[in-house]
């Protein structure tokens, strides 16, 4: 898998970020395993330390297994003043987990996100690549039940 992804991008050091993104997205648990990083290092000819540097620098990358759906809740000022803390509490309460954790069924992971550029519909969250704005308790419940049904 890792080899296929690298070949699709070409063996070039500058493709490291897109390659790691693709590897992570191709994985059900949305993370980069130690073996992934070792393979990338070997196949691209980049020292492990440099691959690790990139994998720990960007907040999209996770070295720990995560859920099927990653819920990224914006906690920047425009969302905070429009109720982001309530949104965070609602998600935590409904899913029964804390920020940074994954539900035991492996379905959801809760994360903070910096601004999603969705400030005109604050408070906002990004769930597996999709934006959700104007969040309130009702909307959160229905989003989660929709995702569960998928």
């Amino acid at each position: 898998m890792v080899e296929e992804i690298i070949n699709s991008h070409g063996i070039a050091e500058d493709k490291l970020v897109p390659i790691l993104l693709d590897i992570q997205n191709s994985n059900d648990k949305h993370y980069l395993s130690e073996d992934d990083l070792k393979q990338v290092s070997r196949l691209l000819g980049i020292p492990e330390s440099r691959v690790y540097s990139v994998a720990t620098f960007y907040s999209f990358f996770s070295l720990q297994p995560r859920g099927k759906y990653i819920i990224q809740i914006c906690d920047n000022a425009p969302c905070i003043v429009n109720g982001a803390y309530n949104v965070i509490d609602d998600f935590r309460h409904i899913l029964g987990i804390d920020m940074g954790q994954t539900t035991p069924d492996g379905l959801f992971t809760l994360e903070y996100s910096s601004c999603l550029g969705c400030c005109s519909h604050a408070p906002a969250a990004r769930i597996s690549g999709e934006l959700y704005g104007d969040l309130d308790s009702e909307k959160i419940k229905s989003i989660l039940s929709d995702l569960r049904r998928r």
Binding site: P47, E48, S49, S53, T56, F57
Partner: peptide
């Protein structure tokens, strides 16, 4: 150029 030590995290 052994490449063991590097900056990580941020």
């Amino acid at each position: 150029q052994v490449g063991i030590l590097f900056d990580a995290y941020r």
